[in-house]
């Protein structure tokens, strides 16, 4: 059993990150590869050294010079750390410091125990106002859109996340009840949805396909099944889908 499991662990198909499907993901993957490689090397080196030192018989060597065993290697690792930090902080800045392009497609993600809802602003490109008192999934208003607000008339609320390929998306995350975590592994994307706050992230899907959306923040008994799908399709298919949903919404 154990053997089977461990063997499988190494012959495993997906024992690394699932294939990337987002524009910024290549940089993330490259960084991940390099840093894990560097640290894995440190790990192996250190442990080989450890075993060797533990097994070899005592040499008549007195205490080694602090410089050789202490500060020199330390300096080397400090350099490694600095390199890791600089490269990673650059990437982080590129992703998070400046906002999306004005042309970006805007979608609101609304989390609640234990569902993801995706709120498209519709043709007027403005989200309808919503109020928690009005939340009622049974009546088809899972995020509490306010019927009094005209901006909401053309809005589309879906439980499946459909996006056009190669178009930047400006995501706006909300949560109705507790903290959830919006996690799309293939998009190298993770951001908590915090009640009482609206948080923005932006990314660009570059490969058509269906990708799982997971909840990465413990949010209650249904945490594990709080999953949805992101479907990245061609521009035209996306427009068709949106139109059909909009018709359903108005009728």
């Amino acid at each position: 059993m154990l053997r089977g499991g461990v063997l499988f662990a190494f012959g495993l198909r997906d024992w690394w990150m699932p294939p990337n499907a987002a524009a910024h993901g290549f940089a993330v993957d490259r960084l991940m590869r390099w840093d894990i490689a560097a640290m894995a090397a440190c790990f192996l080196l250190a442990n080989i050294l450890l075993v060797w030192l533990a097994l070899r018989p005592r040499r008549k060597a007195s205490a080694p010079s602090t410089w050789r065993v202490e500060f020199l290697p330390l300096a080397v690792l400090v350099v490694v750390y600095i390199a890791m930090a600089v490269t990673a902080e650059h990437l982080w800045a590129r992703e998070r410091f400046e906002g999306p392009a004005p042309a970006a497609l805007r979608v609101e993600v609304v989390a609640q125990q234990f569902q993801w809802y995706f709120h498209y602003p519709g043709v007027d490109a403005t989200y309808g106002a919503s109020q928690p008192q009005l939340v009622n999934a049974a009546l088809g208003n899972p995020i509490g859109l306010d019927p009094a607000d005209n901006h909401g008339k053309d809005d589309v609320v879906a439980s499946e996340f459909v996006l056009p390929v190669n178009r930047e998306v400006d995501l706006q995350l909300r949560s109705l009840d507790v903290i959830h975590g919006f996690f799309v592994p293939q998009m190298r994307l993770k951001q908590n949805a915090v009640p009482g706050a609206t948080l923005h992230i932006h990314f660009t899907p570059i490969r058509e396909g269906v990708y799982p959306i997971l909840c990465s923040q413990l949010c209650g008994s249904g945490h594990a099944r709080m999953q949805a799908h992101l479907r990245v399709v061609s521009e035209s298919a996306y427009n068709a889908w949106l139109a059909s949903r909009a018709k359903k919404a108005t009728s």
Binding site: A129, S130, Q131, D146, D149, G196, T198
Partner: peptide, 9 residues
């Protein structure tokens, strides 16, 4: 310092 947006922004 923590407040919120009402329905009308």
């Amino acid at each position: 310092s923590s407040g919120h947006f009402d329905g009308h922004g």
